[in-house]
Nucleic acid binder design. Sequence first.
RNA 1: GCCGGAGUGGCGGAAUUGGUAUACGCGCGCGACUCAAAAUCGCGUGGAGCAAUCCUUGAGGGUUCGAGUCCCUCCUCCGGCACCA
Length: 809
Amino acid sequence: MKKFTPSEIEQKWQKIWDQKQIYKADLNSSRSKYIAMSMFNYPSGAGIHIGHAMNYTISDVMARYKRQQGYESYHPIGWDAFGLPAENYAIKTGVSPQQSMAQIIPSYHKQYKAMGWSNDWSKEISTHEPRYYKWTQWIFSQMYKNGLAYQEARMQWWCSKCQTVLANEQIIDGKCWRHDGADDPIVEKKEVKQWFFKITDYADELLEATDALDWSEVVKTAQKNWIGKSKGAEIEFKLSEGSEAIKVFTTRPDTLFGATFLVLASEHDLVDKITTKEQKAEVEKYVKESTKKTEVERQASKEKTGVFTGAYAINPINNQEIPIWVADYVLVGYGTGAIMAVPAHDERDNEFAIRFGLDISKVVDTKINDITSEGLMINSGEYNGIQSSDAREKIVADLEKKGLAKEKTTFKIRDWSVSRQRYWGAPIPIINCQKCGPVLVPDEQLPVVLPELDDYAPSGDGRSALARAKVWLEIDCPKCGGKGERETDTLDTYICSSWYFLRYFDPQNTDKIFDSTIANKWMPIDFYNGGDHATAHMIYARFITRFFHKLGLVDDPEPFKKFLFNGKIMASDGQMFSKSKGNGVDPLEIINQGYGSDSLRVYLMFAAPLDLWIRWDPQGVPGAYRFLNRIWNIAQEFIDNDKDNTESEEVLRLIHPVIKKVTEDLENQKYNTAIASMMKLTNELYELKAKAGFIGSNSWLFALKSLIQLVAPFAPHTADELWSQFGYEYSVNKDHWPQWQDKYLVSDTTTIVIQVNGKVRANIQVPTDSPEQDILDLAVANEKINTIIGNNPVKKSIYIKNKLVNLVV
RNA sequence: GCCGGAGUGGCGGAAUUGGUAUACGCGCGCGACUCAAAAUCGCGUGGAGCAAUCCUUGAGGGUUCGAGUCCCUCCUCCGGCACCA
C-alpha cells in the first residue's frame, strides 16, 4: 500500500500541469466560458502570506469546479505592480522598481504554482510594463477627449511622509493609509493642480445599477453610501444689500419658514465679498484657522465654531432678514457649500443656534424628541396645516415660479483625483506647452515610457522625481512645436486596476486596448472575490467599464457578475498578521512541513463560511491532512484488493446525495459544508467497510471515483494522483464532474420523529411515503409514547410527510 | 450617531429556511496496534443527575401543535459610513 506523500505528488503534478498546459484557456473555444478570479496581487518583497493563500484559493476552487464541469474555464494571472512600496524601496536602496519587479515576480510564480492554483500563465500581465500602461495612458486620453478628464487647482489631502496627494479613500482616521501608525503625521491640506476624472457624471447610473448586482450585500450598501444620493432643492437667498445671492442646498425645503440664518463654508467664494468692515478681521482669522485644520481636528472638537459675517440675506419665503455666518461644520465640497440653517429641525443647526444665541423657530409639528421627523406645518403662513412632505413640493414649486428655487439632486461622491506626484506609476500623457497649455500626447506616441533614474525620491516641490529627468522632461509641443514639458504626475494606480480584467482577454494586443469580440464573449467576469476595496477599486472598475461601454468597447456595462467580499484571516491571537509583530504564517512553510498545499487549501476553505473572518488555527491543517489521508488510504485499499462486479445500493445511496450536496454548495460558494459532507461520506465508507466490506464492488469504485472528482477542486494534486492510480485518463481536473441520480437520493425507509406536545419522545422506522394513518397508528401504538400519553385522548395530530408526527394531548 | 451583519458545546462552525439543535472539524478522554512513542484505526464527548428524567441556541416576553429560525423589548460584539444639510 502506497503512503500518502504530498511533497512528492504535488511537485510531480505541478510539473505535469506546466508541461501539458492544462490550465491554458482557449479564448476562442466553442465551449461555454467561465472566468473566476481574485483581485490581482501587489508583488512585494515579502512574498505571499496566508491571507493571499485564502483569497486566491477561493477563486481557484470555482475555476477548477467549472473546468471539471466542461466549461472553458479561465483563471487569469496578473500583477498590480505600480505603487508606493516598490518606489520607497528604490529610494532606500537605489534599486530601480523595474529591476526589483523583475526579481520579485518570478519568485511569486513559484509560490503561486506551489499553491496549486490553476492560472493560465501564457496570458500573464503586469501593470508596470509599457505594453500594458500604454493603454492605461490611452484611457486617460479617451477620458480627456470625451470631456471626462480635467485639471483643477484644489485643496488636496497631502501626506508629508509620502510627499504626495491622497484621495479621500486613502485617508484612514485622518492619516495616510500607508502611514496610519501612532507616530505618523496627520494629513494636511495643500493647494495642488490635479487631474480629475468626472466620475460624478456616472454617479446616478452607478447607483441605479447597484441593487441588481449579485454581490455581497455589505459591498452594495457601502457603495450606495459612498455615492450618497440625496434629493432636495436649491434655494436662492438674495443679500439685503448688493446684487449677490447665495444658493443653498436642502433636503427639507418644507422647513424654509424656520430658516433663521445662513451658514457658509470657510472656503465659500462669497465669504470675502459679503463680510462687513467691522467683522473682517474676525472672519479672516477664523477662515485661516479652519482651512488649516484637518478633518480629525474638526471632528475632535464637538463644539460648533463659527463667526458672523455682518451681512444679511432675505428668506425668499417670508422676506425676513436673516444673518449670514461662516462655520466649518458646513463643507465646501458638498451641495453648494452653503446651507440654510433650520435650528428647530436640524440637530447641528440647533447646536449652533444655541451656542451663538440665534433664533429658533419651529415650523413642523413633530414629536417632542424627534425634531427631524415629519408632521403638520405650523408657523408657515399659507402652508399651515398641511403635511410637511406635501409642503416640500409646494414650496419649491411656488418659489420656482419666481426663479428662486429648483429641484436638485446632490451626491457625496466626488470626482476622482487621478494625479499622483510620484515616480512609480504610468506617466500622464500630457505635454504642458508654454503657449497652448496642456496638450494631449498623440495616441501614436504612446506609451510615454517611464525613464529609469538614479534617484527616485520626490523632488520636494510637490512634483515627482520625473521633474529631474531633464532629457525626458523637455519636449516640443505636439500642437505648436514650441517649448513644452512633460507632465510629471503619474496616474493613480487605481486606474491600472480598474480595467486589467479586460486586458486578460487580449494581453498582447499592440493596436487596441483589447479586441471587443473576444471581450464580449468573456465578459462579464463570472466570479470575483477579494477582502478589500469594497468601495474604491470596485467603484472605479465599474466606472471604467461603463465608460468603455459608452465607447462601444464592451456590451455589458457591469464588469463583475458575482462578487464575493470574503473575510480575512487573523493570527491565532486575534491580531492582524504583520511583519513587525512577527506573527505571520508563510504558506510555503506549511507546505514544506510535509502537509502540502492540498491540506492547506482544504483547511482554509473548510474553517468557516468564506465571508467570515477566521483565526489561524495551527491544528487546522493537520486535520485537513488527516481527511485527505483517509481518502488516500481507502483508495489504496481498493487498488490493492480483488474486484468483483457486484453492485451495492447501500453504497450508491451514500454517494449520490453527496454529489448533489457538493455540486450545489459549490454553486453557492458554501465550501465549508461541501467539505464537511465529503468528510462525512469518507467516515461512512470506513464504517461500511468495517461492517460489510464492499471494497471490491462496482459501487465502491463509483463512490471512490466520485469522491476523487468532488475533492479535486480543493485538493487537485491528490485527486490527480489517485485518478491516475485508478487508471483513468489524465486529468481529473478537466472535464470530470460526477452526476447524481435522483433515484438514489431517497431511501426506502425513513425515520419518523414522534413528538408529544412538541417534544421529541421517540422515533420509528417506516417505509418511505407511508400513508398518514399508518404512521399515526404506529405512533400511538409505540410503547414509550403510550406510557407518556396514558389515558389522555389525542386532541390533535400534525403529520409532516417523511419527517415527524406531533401528538397533542 | 446612522447603516449593515452576527451572538449556538472547551474552540471553528452545521441546521433541508418553522419540523430530531449541536452535522463536520479541532481539542479532550478511553481502547487497539507498539518494547515505547508518533502515525493509524475503533469508541466516547452540550450541561445536571446513579437513574428515570430535566435543562440548553446573548436576556426577557409573544405567536405556533412545534421557534436557533418569525414578531416585540433589551444587552453585547464585529464591519462600514460619519457635521453630506
